[in-house]
Design a protein around this nucleic acid. Structure first.
Lengths: 258, 258
DNA sequence: GGCCTGCCTTAACCTGTGTTAATAATGCGG
DNA sequence: CCGCATTATTAACACAGGTTAAGGCAGGCC
């Protein structure tokens, strides 16, 4: 829409990748330009499309610009665990830069606009700027924290708590990128997918959502979900680390920018 | 024991950190010397000791030289999920280099010999050598893969499969570092800890281990566990990624060493 | 050697979640 | 606005795994 300018673009027009990495590591204008270039070629696909599959070789990460996707692993008999949802600005997964095979499959949930970030380009950038290396590593660590909390939820929480946890996580992440407000958010996933994320059957997920409704925590109208009682929801959740951004970044930045 | 020599030390005397990182990224003698220095101060603690706690600030990672530890997250009512076991050579967790608070607690399982690797030192090293940065990042990505597979196991596998999965994971990792052979391994954890790793009650874990025994897959004598039928065990497991080392490293190395 | 203490095992029982299947919404193309 | 296909809900039932509690066994200590 707006032409590229020589000076700083207004941040609204920045690639979501830059916005995200920049929250953690202070980037020089040169870094920003290099990162912007990474996300410059846009691809599109329809909802339901598979972007890559587990155990296949890969040389590029997927940077989501617009739409939702999810990553999952499916066992030979069809049982499926959704690892995580991917939102605009998410890099799925940064691990590809140091690893050659995907540990999971990735599928678009809605129509998706994305870029492919080639591992070689990132490694080149790393050589030139340790700040960029740290920023990508941080993005990876952030995902790791999310996965870890997910493991705790699935391993040790009841269905009710687990679903609350998932809602909380998504709501928090969406608010961070301006796609949700204090009231709630649009959640484009079907209950089968949500159930596979929570490690529940879709029947029990439905029961559980109904209970959240009945008890006044959540109200749904189609894909529009409203949080009615954030306080009680948070009480159920307990683990909220892995979601908050992390102030050590300032320290990293000082170290690396010398 | 043996004095430090000017030339290459025999690899048996190398820090397990170097051995591990080197499997992935080709390191220069300078890199190796720098990494060796990281693990030079040894600390010791008794089994059961807590090394750090979730949500507390940290500035150093723990590098295990000898003994077992585990990382876990405990909910306010005492329910506990073991995230992972830490074996000699493991860096727990590399995430600290880009993150300021632990997402979990760490506890020694046996008497432990370890070093503290300060984030600042690693960041300094990264500035000097992108290879070292990539190596640490890889170590982090490797842990992430393990956690992810663990999530799938806990979320979507039956108790029987899940325990098989855990055994397989530990056995594989122990063989990689020469602490297990084709027959089995020493597993110093009590059943309460193993149960919390599998996301099961210790009673059901006991039942499940008995079943593995009854069906001829596993035989235990105290802490000594022997795998009797690796083939059938592997069939139960399905997911084995995250365990194999990864040949992309060669590519990284080429890129970074120019 | 006997006791104590901390595991591990077993049994009986209970409950949360899965399964199957029928019904009700919802959304979509014509 | 109707009919079809998909997705969500509900109900009835089954079962994996949790809970409680009672032994058993081994190792450490006096």
């Amino acid at each position: 829409m707006t032409g590229r300018q020589l000076s700083e673009k207004p941040s609204q027009l920045r690639s979501p990748l830059v916005l995200k990495l920049r929250t953690m590591v202070e980037l020089t204008p040169g870094d920003v330009a290099a990162l912007d270039a990474l996300g410059s070629v846009r691809h599109h696909c329809a909802g339901g499309q598979t972007l890559f599959e587990a155990d296949k070789r890969r040389t590029a990460a997927v940077l989501v610009h617009d739409g939702w996707a999810f990553r999952h692993r499916t066992l030979s008999d069809g049982r499926r665990q959704v690892i995580d949802f991917d939102l605009p600005g998410d890099l799925c997964d940064p691990t590809v830069f140091v690893t050659s095979r995907a540990g999971f499959s990735m599928q678009a949930l809605t129509a998706l606009s994305y870029s492919l970030v080639r591992a070689e380009e990132v490694l080149d950038l790393m050589t030139r700027s340790p700040r960029i290396g740290a920023a990508f590593w941080w993005a990876d660590a952030h995902q790791e924290a999310i996965t870890r909390a997910h493991l705790v939820a699935v391993g040790r929480m009841s269905a009710y708590e687990r679903v609350a946890y998932l809602l909380w996580e998504l709501w928090t992440r969406l608010r961070m990128i301006g796609l949700a407000d204090g009231a709630g958010f649009e959640f484009p996933a079907g209950q089968d997918v949500i159930a596979d994320a929570a490690g529940l059957s879709y029947v029990h997920l439905s029961r559980t959502l109904r209970r959240l409704d009945r008890e006044g925590l959540l109200r749904r109208a189609g894909r529009n979900w409203r949080i009615l009682d954030a306080g009680r929801l948070h009480d159920l959740v307990q683990i909220t680390d892995g979601l908050q951004l992390n102030p050590l970044a300032r320290r990293i930045q000082e170290r690396l920018s010398r």
